[in-house]
Design a binder for these strands. Structure first.
Length: 421
RNA sequence: GGAGGCUUCGCCUAGUCCGGUCUAUGGCGCCGCACUGCUAAUGCGGUUGGGGUUCGCGCCCCUCCCGGGUUCAAAUCCCGGAGCCUCCGCCA
């Protein structure tokens, strides 16, 4: 939910944001109209109610003869109040609807356009050359190592499911543990989150809008499976006034993540690039909105720190407005080089949601004057199952073995190489 | 699956039987002032949140889990719902 004051005072800015996203700017005008209508109906209902209260007081103190006449008057007024109230709540509903239809206002310097209009901010590291052999893809390496079993994954659960076995399971645990270790060193509170959340939490984070088809829903229990621990971590402080006087509150969530991958038929059907269930360590930060842009840069830096530890070549992109989620004002992705695909694939994603989620979830903090204000929320990836793809492919050797990045070795019991079975 | 209880202004709490000075009590916390040569103790005062209106002081409305209803008038009465807790049963 965006700030209505901003909509009223700088309508053009919000319209421009919609245009940058490639969405209809007229939703903004609808919102302005709805806000005006609500304001007017509130005013009318308020003054009628004030009148009613005064009259009600007179009824309670009046003598018997006077009382009867006053009651007649009061009855008429009650009808008028009821009508005004009905209009008020109708206007409220309309405003709410118009409000929810407008995604977050993008930062002013976000590149406009769609999926392909990102801006590359930097490229880091050297792509591997593979002298004298043709690199295997992660599916083949996973088989050689006995690390990934997609056949049995689909036997048991269907397409886009997999087993991580032996070295694969250990490698993932090592990676995620390294992510948690880094987060804790940095001052994050590690959290193992619920994977099922209530509708208001899923809705509050902005995931039930245009991309609701991505979400698994358990209808019998009216719960949703989370696609990222961002969701429970955002819900954690809903309807609270949190203390940010000591700076941002940072959590590192560990969870399995579930995604329906609706509409992605035919994309990445092999291996574990795009799957229905994976594991992730995610950073989440609550902070003063004034600090959100800086915090966003910090989250990006911590992501890059992780990528450096696993010694992967990657680039950082500034995602275009049209490719942002509805909650995000800006998003940076880190994409690792995948040798057998000859292209970069997203490994991390960090979004600044400013106060958009906090407004929906009613998460506030007290500012320097002690006034409650909406907090900003941000999130960013530290590690996911998909990272295994990049690690296996980039660090593979001619004999099918895989070199373990130095920083990761302590988390694998000191192991330096993953050997084919 | 069954039974019972609870939900009030950051937290705790009075009030609900019997509708109107509930314009919601008190404590904790927090803020300000006073006093004391310190951080303490004490006293006094302030402190729910949201919205409307106003240059501003202010004024008004809403807010006692949510939604309906009764009534001139609802924290209070009636109906429906949600959440939380406890116990029993069952299963791990």
């Amino acid at each position: 939910m965006i700030d209505l004051r901003l909509v009223r005072e700088d309508t053009d800015l919000v319209r421009a944001s919609q245009a940058a996203r490639g969405e209809d700017p007229s939703t903004v005008d609808t919102l302005v109209t709805a806000a005006d209508r609500r304001r007017e109906s509130v005013g009318r209902a308020d003054s009628l109610r004030a009148e009613q209260k005064v009259l009600g007081k007179r009824v309670s103190t009046a003598g018997p003869e006077e009382r009867l006449a006053l009651l007649v008057q009061a009855r008429d007024l009650a009808v008028a109040v009821k009508a005004a109230q009905a209009e008020e709540s109708a206007a409220d509903v309309a405003l709410q609807e118009a409000h929810l239809a407008v995604p977050n206002v993008v930062e002013h310097d976000v590149p406009a356009g769609g999926e392909d209009d990102y801006v590359v901010l930097k490229e880091v590291g050297d792509k591997p050359t593979f002298e004298g052999f043709t690199p295997r893809d992660h599916v083949e390496i996973g088989q050689l190592l006995g690390a990934i079993d997609t056949d049995r994954g689909s036997k048991v659960s269907g397409a886009r499911f997999y087993f991580l076995t032996g070295q694969g399971a250990l490698l993932q645990l090592a990676l995620l543990n390294m992510a948690v270790a880094q987060a804790v060193e940095t001052g994050f509170t590690p959290v193992i989150t619920p994977s099922l959340v209530r509708p208001e939490v899923m809705g509050g984070t902005g995931y039930l809008g245009a991309h609701a088809a991505e979400i698994y829903r358990l209808e019998i229990d009216d719960l949703y499976l989370v696609g990222t621990s961002e969701v429970p971590l955002a819900g954690m402080h809903m309807a609270e006034i949190i203390d940010l006087s000591a700076g941002p509150r940072r959590y590192a969530g560990w969870s399995s993540c579930y995604r329906r991958e609706a509409g992605s038929y035919g994309k990445d059907t092999q291996g574990i690039i795009r799957v229905h269930q994976f594991d992730k360590v995610e950073m989440f930060s609550y902070c003063d909105p004034a600090e959100a842009r800086d915090e966003h840069k910090r989250l990006l830096a911590w992501e890059e720190q992780m990528l450096a530890k696993v010694e992967l070549p990657y680039r950082v992109i500034d995602t275009a407005a049209g490719d942002l989620g509805s909650s995000a004002a800006r998003k940076y992705d880190c994409e690792a080089w995948i040798p057998t695909q000859g292209r970069y694939r997203e490994l991390t994603s960090t979004s600044n949601c400013t106060t958009f989620q906090a407004r929906r979830l009613n998460i506030r903090f007290r500012d320097a004057d002690g006034r409650p204000q909406f907090a900003a929320t941000l999130n960013g990836t530290l590690a996911t199952t998909r990272w295994l793809v990049a690690i296996l492919e980039n660090h593979q050797q001619p004999d099918g073995s895989v070199l373990v990045p130095v920083a990761l070795r302590p988390f694998l019991g000191g192991r330096e190489v993953l050997q084919p079975l």
